[in-house]
Each structure stands twice: as C-alpha cells, then as structure tokens.
Design a protein around this nucleic acid. Sequence first.
RNA 1: GCCACUGUGGCUUAGGGGUAUAGCAUCCCAUUGGUAAUGGGAAGGUCGGGAGUUCAAAUCUCCCCAGUGGCUCCA
Length: 649
Amino acid sequence: MSMIKVEIDGNETREYETGITAGDVIKDVYGRKSGCVAVLVNGIEKDLSENLNLGCVVESINGESEAGLYILRHSCAHLLAQAVTQLFPEAKPTIGPPIDHGFYYDFYMDSIGDGELKEIENKMKEIMKLNLPIIREEHSNESLRDMFNNNHFKIEIIDEKLGQESGSTAYRQGDFLDLCRGPHVSTTSQLRWFKLTSTSQAYWRADSKKESLIRIYGMCYATKEGLKNRERQLQEAAKRDHKKIGKEMELYMINEMIGRGLPVWLPNGEILKSSIEKFALETEDSYEYQRVTTPVLGKKELFEASGHLPHYAEGMYPPMEMDDGIYYLKAMNCPMHHLVYSNKKRSYRDLPLRIAEYGTVYRNELSGALTGLLRVRMLSMNDAHIYCTLDQVAEEFANNIKMVQDYYSTFGFKNYYFRLSLWDPDNTEKYIDQPKNWEETQNHLRKILDDLEVPYEESIGEAAFYGPKVDIQFTTAIGREESMSTIQLDFAAKERFSLTYTDETGSDNGEVFVIHRAPLSTHERFVAFLTEHWSGNFPTWLSPIQVQINTISEKHKEYANYLGQELKNAGIRMRIDDSDNTIGKKIRMHRKMRPAYMAIIGDEETDNKTVSIRARDGRQRNGVPLKQFIQEISSENFNRETELSLIPE
RNA sequence: GCCACUGUGGCUUAGGGGUAUAGCAUCCCAUUGGUAAUGGGAAGGUCGGGAGUUCAAAUCUCCCCAGUGGCUCCA
C-alpha cells in the first residue's frame, strides 16, 4: 500500500495510506468531536467520506463557519424531504436549497397546515435519531432518469444537464434518495438544531405560469446556542416592527373602508414625513433642483408614449373612461416631467436640467403583497428627473450617490448596500428591447460605480423597463430585503418623447439622457425603515414629540405652561401633561409616544426657573436653566443631530 | 392573485356549543404627588361580515372581508 502526503489546515502535513477518507484524516488530527462537517480538498468542497488517493491539501469546514452552516442547512433540507416523502408518499420533492438562517424545500403536493408541519418536524427528529449514514452515489444521467422516473421535476433538472455532463451525483439516506451535488454531512444525527418555521406557496422555477408548489421553511444551526440566538433575534426584531410601533406612536392608520395599501398619515407620522420633506427640499435646493407639480391622472396616449402601457400595465390601476378619452392614474412621474422638459426649447446651457416633485403615484400592487407602510398602493415620493448629456451622466450619478450617502448618515442608516440592477436578455418582453442600448448604459453605470469605488452587487432582471439602475438595498427588521433608494438611467425617453436640445453648434441634438432618482425611497417605505431602525426612538429633529413636559403637582402648572410656550416659540414640538396623575405614572404613560426628552417640573424648577431633563433612555440632568435648555435643544434640532446630546452619557 | 395561519370593547388578552374574562387607556371622585403602576367607582364588546347546522354558536361548517408570513411583483 502506497502512502500519500496530506496537508491539513495549513498547519501540518501527515502521511496516510492511499484511499483514506477525509473524515478519517480529520479524526486523526482533531479527534472525534471536531465540529467538522465537510472538507475542502485542494480548494473544492467534498464530503468527509471522500477518498484521498493523491497527495493533497485538506481544509476542514466547521459547522459553525458560513460554509459549514450552508452544508448543514442543505443536509437539513434533505432530511425534511425524507420526512415529507415518508409521511406523504405522493409528495414530489423539487428543489431545496440552504438560505440565510436555514433552508427550504419545495414540494409538489397538497397544501398542508400547522398540524402537518409539526408532524413533519417530529418525523425529522425521528430520522435524525436513527443516525442514518448519508451516502454519496455517482450515476449516469440515464440511470438517474430511471431512478427519478416518477418525478418530472427531477427529470427536468437531469435533462438540463444532458449534454453538459454525462453523470451526476445523488445522496442516499435510508431509503430516501435525492439528486444533489453535495457535499453533505455524513449522518442524519449531525442535524440536531433545526426547527420548521412556516409554509408558503411557491411556483416551480419561480414562474407563476408553472406548477404551484408547497414550500416549507426551516431554520438550522450547528449548535443549540445558534438556534436559540436566532429565535431571540427574531423576537427582538418583532419589537421593532414598524406596524407595531406605528400603531403605538399613532404614525399612520389603514382603514378598510378607504382601502388596502392606502395608508393615512396621522399627525405624528405627518410630522416625520414633513420633516423628511423639509430636509430634502433644503438639500435639493443646494443641488439646484427645480420643483414642479403635475397631475395624478393622465391620458392613455401619454402612457403609451412613455412605454408604461406596453411594459408596465399590470403595475397600473385600470383605466378610467371619461367623455374625452381614457385616463390612467400615474404610476410614475416621468412622463409628465418629460413634457415639462419639452415644454420649451432647451439649450445645452440648460443641461443638466433637474426637475423635482413631491408627487404621489399609484401602483396596483397585488393585494397579497401589501404590508404596513412597506408595500402600499399609493406612493409619496420626492422624485426627480435629470435631463443631461451622456457626458454629464457620471457626475449626476456621483452627486446622487453622494446625496444618498449624506442622507443616510443624517438618518443614522448604516446597513445597506448598492445593487446594479440589470435587464434580463432572456425576458425581453419586460423591457424595451434594445440590447445595444442596454449593454452600453449598463457598462456606463458599471464604470461610474467602479470609478467612485462604491462596492456593489449586480443583479440580473432587476432593471426598470427603460434602463438599468443603481438601487440601494436594505433589510427590514424581520429580515426581508427591500429596495430603498434608486437612481436609474433612461435611454429610451429621448426617442419616445423627442427630447432634444440645441447644442454648441446650433443644431438639434437628440442625445438627452434621463436620470430618474428617488434617494429617499417613498415616504411610506422610508418611514417604515426609519421606524424600525430607531425602534421608534427617533433623533430629536424627527421625534413627533420632542419634549414631553410633566408637572409634579398642580402648583407647577403655570411655569410648565410658560416653558411650553417658550419651547413652542423656539419651534420645538412639545406636549404638556399637567393632569393630577403622579409623576411616575406620567413618565410611564408618555414613554409609549417616545418623546426625545421629558421635562420634569416641580418646586425646584419653578423656584429657580430651571428644567430637569430626562432623556428617552432614562439619562437625567437636573437643574438646567430654562434658556440654556431651549438653546441646547434648538441647536440639536436645527443641526439634525443623530443622538440625544443634551445629557452626557 | 396564490398557499398557510390569524381576526374577542381604543390597546393587550381569557374563554372555546348554553348569550363574554381581565389589565391598560377613557370618564368621575378622592389624593398635591419628585422620575416605569396612589386608591375607589363608572362606562364600554354580541365575539371581522354573511349564510348554515343546532332547542341553543363567539365556540362547528361554508362563503366573503381584513391582517400576518411567504410566493410572484416591487419604491
């Protein structure tokens, strides 16, 4: 028997007999309980059962590492499929990938409820305890076709591989076999810390025209702590949910009689909204935007010209027939802004021309997609369109990216990433079908981002119908990713609306590019994020109630009202509670509204003309002279400070 | 739109075939009180809507509506 040299985790090299399994090498080096779920052999992921026949470099993949967790979760998906097929022999497994925090598996089967979910989870635990070995098998595509001949989903996957590869791998655990390239953990007993969380409907190949499938979600971790932490995390996140806080703080309401997805801004929410608008107005003023107001309705011909009706019709409300034609509610402001542009003859000296609007657009979202302020049918936007030459696009994009970053830092946002959203050349009916223009503009944006050294991800099929865009992506409290800001490049408008300008040579130039941008998302979504980010504990400048004045007793009413008036004169939003409740009760009651500060007014304060301030987190500063308090809070408010700075930590 | 789950006074919630719990908030009375619950009293719901089963339904069945999670879609 010949020997081979194996280097392990870059630490040491040992000699083994040819054919030893990777698992035995790991056991030899680290002992039984290494936490290793798979290995990299010369950089390629392999099972622990992999035989090593040549000298190689082996790196262990720990179950708690990112790669290890994905393997655990992937194996857990197989365990789920095994349980489901045992309990429901008619169910056909389709695909079941690992995802963040867990896994899912899509089955072609009758729908199931919570009872069945529990049953499946119990069955998984049973199988787990059987400690079944998970065995890798290699087969030709022909024999795989035979093995899965009762499952046309698997056949479809196998057939896609025909011509590319002659064979494939499958994994067996007990009498369950699944097509999979692996790697997987070696026995079912390694999958201990999982939990099924929910079911959902999904479509085969994510196509709503294809078979409807039942998706089962689960979470899976390497350790008990991992699982527990995740559960705790979800509980914490639920407390930040903007729907819950929005109700508590009376930010918005949704009334069935008005309609789904049509939120009403209550006074407190309106304060948030108008504070954001005021900030945006100031900012955009400095960037030389000009404001307009356009109607919420427009004629069919307008939206045909813009391309909305051919490419975006299902996103729009149905038409309204009037005595002089057919009208639509606008889903975007752009067509109207284009007409503002061409309302008069433009010169190269006018470019870039930046037309902005606080507009409301209406989009016909599917009812099942609506949720709180995050997905609505009426969208308030600080929208703008920039008309410029191709040469100017880069600078305008750069300015907008900078604007977004500045906004976000003022609002305290940190967790977001840029996404270059590209068209999908295989799905051309969704887009204006001009491949050359797509290629050019996409490359242009890519270069702009590279030059700015902004890290970004690319995503196919996320573009607008008229051009590629840069989206800024966020994750909500409950972990769903949503687009926030967007900056889009439009190469189609110039032709559709005959946008031209007189260039330096005096001739008509039709090369007008349009940038659509909404750096603050929609007010609805933005406020939802803002609420979740701050858990409702907004910076002073955004707090609907900036100071809650609480009196100790009736004696202090007069001074409290004087303080209130002074604050009001200084532009500070305050409320006074001079009821005869105890101070403890007042504090408890008003905490729900999350005022930035509470001012406590008793004998001390009244006698000395001072204020005792209590920050939202309980920090306290007593005996602040009234004038000083007003001056400090005014400055914090005016400067849009992110933190409550009146009271030292 | 699709799948599952949920729907009890303003909010949180008990109950689960014999006409409904409690707390907070509200209102009234007393208390003049120093930083997360001062005491007492009152009022408030027919159990999302409709139909059915039953002597009897909030409780069972069906159909709607709405909310939540997910799919599709998307700011």
